[in-house]
Design a protein around this nucleic acid. Structure first.
Lengths: 342, 342
DNA sequence: ATATTGACAGAAAGCGTTTTCAATAAACCG
DNA sequence: CGGTTTATTGAAAACGCTTTCTGTCAATAT
């Protein structure tokens, strides 16, 4: 069906040397004369030779492929996570030079469909990048295995993790809102984990410092869960002592919440200030543009790539976390609260 | 570094049979007794054996991996194309059962970084799914090769293509706007290709049928190019005879254009109706929600998967196009034009 | 009882590389 | 010039699987 690919043997015959020599020439090994090296490379170019990466793996034990694993539960389509995709884009770019390729590992986890770790083993990935729910058993298994792995927003210490300085920048966001005059600020946060807790702590402390009581204004939400965000928003805005500003766990939910509020007749930012986290492209496209904590997806992707490459090449010794600075990005969705609301 | 993986030889020893028998047992071949088959499978399970897909490829010439290629020019990050990701998600799900995996092939095409086809050859993909610019030489090369390939929005006849019934549904959209009372409807369309032309034709005909002159109201835009969309929008809204409704080539640009209009002081849909194409999730999250042509990404992904699988298994004989029905989805961004604008 | 079939098992070759090791030729040294 | 090092090459094994082909043995037919 497929044209027969040309092999190292074809090259050898064409050049009048042995396959061994061809291999050495192509891989820039020592022990092959400049003349033959050039001949081989030139012939390889001429015949458009593409080394069989599978056969190569068998010897080298390096597949030059990486798995990426996005898992937020079976109901959350992996590839729709635009923020993760932004990071992945940067991650991928880093690895392009090193001839690594990326395999999408994410899948529905129903039945005994095989664990993520087994999937990696089968595909012989050199390493894995994980986004998602670190409490999931299949992800835990992976993290605890000897498969080189890095995680975004992971801080469990078993693998290198990269995350933003959530504590600082969340504080910055809250203080900014306070400085505008907001006092009743609600925080709809995501599922509890290290990142969420950092943000909650920052929120609490900033509010307390300003003399406001944060406790009644924290609400458990779910990352990227639009329905949930809408529900909470409706409830909050219907309550008698409604907040003048609401933070959401991510831009996705924040944008949905804006719509909900607007549908209810509130205008943004006059009647309600809204802010999100992440800083996806869409935050800039909606009206009013969303105030958000812009995480530096490019740097995060780079850091993840660096950590993983290091882990692959140098073994598990260097197991650090990297913190990337996020930036408060003020859009049109936040403003001084109206006098009557104060 | 990595724990040594267990092989078919380990299984053979453990079971007291030959490697050949193990292979046969695991692959459900004839010629192995029920007893040994069971023993082997049970032992494989117990030792958590994962067959080396690389070694397997060497014999079978089936890598069970597919490439996905998203290329819209070097300035457009591949993984940010949310609509494509929606389709890819569905495509991927289809192939999950068949133990196929997906490799991200998209990359920057600078210098002699190797063509897409060579990349496929190196990775031994069984097939490729293409999104993007079919005029690109590297994509053309791929399409004309013997690599099994399918394309979304491709209609060149060299590979199977899947696309929506753009002509019909665009007509529907335009007629809907006409029925609301709009007469000055502008169409900012994407780069010229089969799909764009279908839409333009539908627009022209619907407008002409209604007695409107479509010619001066067609504007060349670029798919997914937000800056461009903003620029055109500003120009259109500043003109004396400004349109009461504008269509954009996709939801991304439509949403950005809404913001631009709103920033200029127009309210939507009162002063301007806006519509997009694709039907991404975000179209539903903005305010007002976007009227759009919702392409059925799930069905599109399925059709692409079916075509590709067919092409892989049965060779290039069956080279058809599949048309998937899109649906007009009316949101809050379109309404009757204000009387003064009529 | 013998001949014939069929089911099962294993030996061995092959897939396309890399890598080790031995062999050869060339260069160097005293 | 003999002996020793050095550069270059290729033969062959190895990687982990599949697949063909041969052999064995029991079951069936004659």
């Amino acid at each position: 069906m497929q044209e027969k690919a040309i092999t190292i043997y074809d090259l050898a015959k064409e050049c009048g040397v042995s396959p061994a020599t061809v291999s050495k020439a192509l891989n820039d090994y020592k022990g092959v004369s400049a003349k033959t090296r050039e001949l081989v490379n030139e012939t390889a170019m001429r015949l458009n030779f593409q080394a069989n990466s599978m056969a190569r793996y068998l010897n080298t034990k390096r597949s030059y492929s990486l798995g990426v694993l996005i898992y937020l539960g079976n109901s959350m389509p992996a590839l729709k996570q635009t923020f993760f995709m932004d990071i992945l884009e940067s991650f991928k770019t880093q690895f392009e030079q090193n001839r690594y390729d990326i395999i999408i590992l994410s899948k529905q986890l129903k039945g005994t469909h095989g664990s993520f770790l087994n999937h990696c083993k089968k595909r012989k990935t050199d390493g894995v990048l994980v986004f998602g729910d670190y409490t999931n058993p299949s992800i835990t298994e992976l993290i605890e295995s000897d498969m080189p792995t890095v995680g975004f927003d992971y801080a469990g210490g078993k693998i290198p993790g990269v995350f933003s300085n959530n504590y600082e920048v969340t504080g910055e966001l809250v203080r900014y809102l306070l400085s505008l005059g907001h006092r009743r600020i609600a925080f709809v946060h995501g599922e509890l984990n290290f990142i969420t807790e950092e943000r909650m702590r920052a929120f609490s402390e900033a509010m307390r410092e300003a003399g406001a009581d944060p406790e009644p204004l924290m609400f458990e939400g779910k990352y990227y869960n639009v329905d949930f965000a809408r529900e909470v928003t409706e409830k909050l805005l219907s309550s008698r002592e409604r907040p003048t500003a609401i933070l959401y766990p991510d831009d996705f939910t924040a944008i949905a919440a804006m719509q909900t509020a607007q549908k209810m007749g509130f205008s943004i930012p006059e009647d309600l200030s809204v802010a999100g986290f992440d800083g996806i492209d869409f935050a800039d496209l909606v009206y009013p543009s969303l105030t958000t904590v812009k995480q530096n997806s490019v740097e995060i992707g780079r850091a993840l790539a660096r950590c993983l490459l290091n882990r692959i090449n140098n073994g598990p010794s260097t197991m650090s976390s990297v913190v990337i600075k996020a930036k408060l990005k003020i859009g049109g969705s936040t403003a001084k609260p109206k006098a009557e609301n104060k």
